[in-house]
Structures are given as C-alpha cells and as structure tokens.
Design a protein around this nucleic acid. Structure first.
Lengths: 225, 225
DNA sequence: CCAAAAGTGTTAGTGATACACCCATGT
DNA sequence: ACATGGGTGTATCACTAACACTTTTGG
C-alpha cells in the first residue's frame, strides 16, 4: 500500500462473474447467458457484471445471479480473480470469479434486460464463450473436482431428501469415474453425513430406495480430510 | 457481464497486497512495511499498492514486492480478493492478496520512498496492522498451513542445499507441532522429493548432517495427496 | 570422554479397495 | 416370472503412527 493518491490513477473496472454448476439429467451443467450487448454480442458467457461502489464482492455475485438468472440461495465461494490486462478488448477489466452450486429443480430460469437467454449447458459440450470465460470455467471445474474429493459440497447439489444412489451419481458424474456402491455407502455412513428419513422413493419400477437428509451440522461445507 | 458502459460506473480502486513469509531464527516471519503516508501513517502493513492499468495482478504483486522491499524471485500465488466496501476508510479499494514464500538469506531488505521501514515480524507476535491486514495475514497463515500439509511449498523456504533436519524444522515451526524424525525422513524419501549431495554440513559441534537438494521436477509445487 | 545432533527399522493399527449375491417392487 | 435398481459384509493391502539406540563430530 503506497503513498499515492488513488484518484491519480487510471482505474480498472471490476466485475464479478459467477460459474454456477448443477447436476441434471445425469450430466454436469453450467449456467450461461447469451449476451445482448457488445462486445461478444450474441455469444454465450458466464453471468456477471460490474461491482457497485458500495457492495461487497459476494453481494455483487449474489445480485448478478439473481438479476440475470433468477437464481438465489446457492452455495457460493470465491474462485479466483482474473486480471490479465487484455482479457476484455474494450478496457481494463478485472473480474473476481465466484463458484456456485445449486440443486436445479428449485427455481425457474428467466432472462433479463442485459441478457437474451439463459440456459444450462453440459460442461462437457460447451459453446464458444465470450472473453476468457473458457479458461475461467475450466478453472472452476478443477476446483469443483477438488472440492468433491475433500469436502461435502456435493450435498448442495441435492434436494432436501435424496437417496444414496443420487448422491453417489453426483460424485460419479462430476469426477467422471465410477465408484463402488458398498464402499461409498460405508464411507458416507461412517462420516455420519446423512440421516435416515422414514420415507421411501415412490413410483419407481423397482424396489424403492430409502430417503435421507443431510445430517444437522454439515450445515455447510465440511472438509473431510 | 452486463450491457453497461463501464465508464458510467464509479469505479473502485484495485490494489495488490503481498503476504511474504519466511522461516528464520526458528520462527515463522511475515514481512511488513511501515507506512509513510495516510491513512494509517506510521503503522505497519502488508506491502502492496495500486495495480497499473496495463499490468497483470501477478506482475503488480512482483513489482510491489521489489519496489517496497527489494525482494525478488519468490514463490507467489493468489490468495484471495478482499472487497469489503469499508475496508479502506478513504474510498472503495478492492485488494487482490497474494501469498509468497522465500528463503530469507538471499537478499537485503531495503525501504523505499513510500515506506519508512521494512522488517520481518514473528507471525505469532504481530504489531497492530493497518486496514484489514490482520484478517488477511490470518487467512494467509491458514492457507500456508494447508499448503504445507498437502504440497511441497516448504521447499521454497529452503536454500539450495539443506539438511533433512532443516526441512523438518520448517514443517514443525509452521504447523506448530513436532514430527517424528524417522517417519518424516521415511516419507520424504519415499516421495523422492530430495536428492543426496556429496557434501556435508561444516563447522558444527556435532556429527555433520548430509546435504540434499530438491529433486529435479518438483521444480515448483507438487500436490502430495 | 562428554555433549549434541545425525542417522536408522520394526510393529501395530487404521483406513482404502476389491468383490457378488439376495431383496423389494412394478409390469 | 422377469427386469430394475436397492441393499449388504469380509478379506487384503497400503499407509500412518509409535517407539530407542548407535554414530560421528567438536570441544
């Protein structure tokens, strides 16, 4: 922190971008918005926007997500700040990227004024993205995979009540590898991450699975080293 | 990313701050600078400063470290971006904090124009710090400890040639716990992190220890999960 | 010969992996 | 009765943790 008067400096703009993941239709999906303005008009991009002068970065991330996509109440954490001077062709823009997870069945997407369209895309079949958003999304995937292995973030992708098979599938889809059912259940139970509910799946053409909820103070994210 | 003209917005200032750690005199030290200007004139702070309009965040971090403290060639990674609207009393300042490690014996500290004084402080006995720097330093310590357990960052705190006891001490000081010598050496050797050198310690009043170097392509940081 | 740190192996316990069959339900 | 996923236990392997004595050097 130097003895400069901040106002002497030509200032970069600051944005937040939010990489929102969900698991849906047996696939890992990212939320993208279609840009309605230049630069990169009509191209898909990560939702985001400028940080207001009196809001925190996290508040900005929540606000953008709500405004552009109608999504609220997500697991949210800061991912990384991308500040390459050339990442925006117009001017210097530094972006604090956030990383978010939701259970997709809880809201309806809707577009907004700045945005022509909003949609889920398979992480493994993305369209061309605006700015350096490809790089950002790839970085987010790395972080997501890491978090899956060492924390309980997976639970934020589930509905209130879920089966152990649903939970396991989330791990399998994101980590892109199959897991042993018995070992998986053994571990989940040993860590006491879930609590039995006195209910079972309904309307399935096979033996209905027991339902579980997250156990109390996993509330949010537990490191499971 | 929204359809706004960036120039319409009141822009926050962006700084980088660098938390530089070293291990010295059997203690974990942080580099602090004494501010020569308001706000917080004469108070100790993490080195840092404004990001220039055409330099990347990482370049800014390197530049500030060199300018304010004469330190170069460090291990450097982005830590977190702090953006609370009230963290700077003057105006909105968002700071991208970087986290750095050096072997302290390789350079001479020197103060600069913006800075009255530069010095190493024990991480466990810090003076009062400017801004929200206490919080930032604590966050950096958490990250450092985490990195010690799961990566090979420790090696960036060592000189070219070192003994296994020196290496072990670094772990012990930072993690603040003692480790078993035999198990420690077994693990380091099993992971092939070090290479024997045909030299020994000199001028010590006991059996001289064998010297080692970092093994080839640990070059930088290896995750040791 | 004393002080100081260097160096070295074995055992027990814990957690991870591999693996196959019966069960409950709907059609 | 059959198809579909649900549900369960044991044995092996790998890694971690605990632990004590001998060696080499300088003073």
């Amino acid at each position: 922190m130097a003895g400069y008067d901040a106002s002497k400096f030509e200032r970069p703009s600051v944005t937040v971008d939010v990489i929102l993941f969900t698991v849906k239709d047996d696939d890992l999906k990212v939320l993208l918005v279609k840009r309605n303005v230049d630069p990169f008009k009509d191209m898909w991009a990560i939702p985001g926007g400028f940080v207001k002068i009196d809001e925190s970065l996290e508040d900005a991330a929540k606000r953008e997500l709500l405004e552009e996509t109608n999504v609220r109440d997500v697991y949210l954490e800061q991912l990384y700040t991308f500040g390459d001077p050339k990442r925006d062709p117009r001017t210097r823009v530094i972006t604090a990227a956030y990383f978010a997870l939701v259970n997709a069945e809880k809201f309806k997407l809707k577009a907004s004024t700045d945005v022509k369209d909003v949609n889920w895309f398979s992480m493994f079949d993305l369209p061309e993205l605006a700015f350096d958003h490809k790089k950002i999304v790839e970085y987010a995937l790395k972080r997501l995979r890491w978090k899956m292995e060492y924390t309980t973030v997976a639970f934020s992708l589930l509905p209130e009540k879920f089966t152990l098979t649903q939970l396991q599938k989330i791990y399998e889809i994101i980590l892109d590898k199959s897991l042993d059912k018995r070992n998986f259940r053994k571990k989940i139970k040993a860590l006491e991450l879930v609590k039995e509910v006195q209910e079972f799946q309904e309307e399935v053409a096979h033996r209905p699975a027991r339902l579980y909820t997250k156990n109390k103070k996993i509330g949010e994210i537990v490191e499971i080293f």
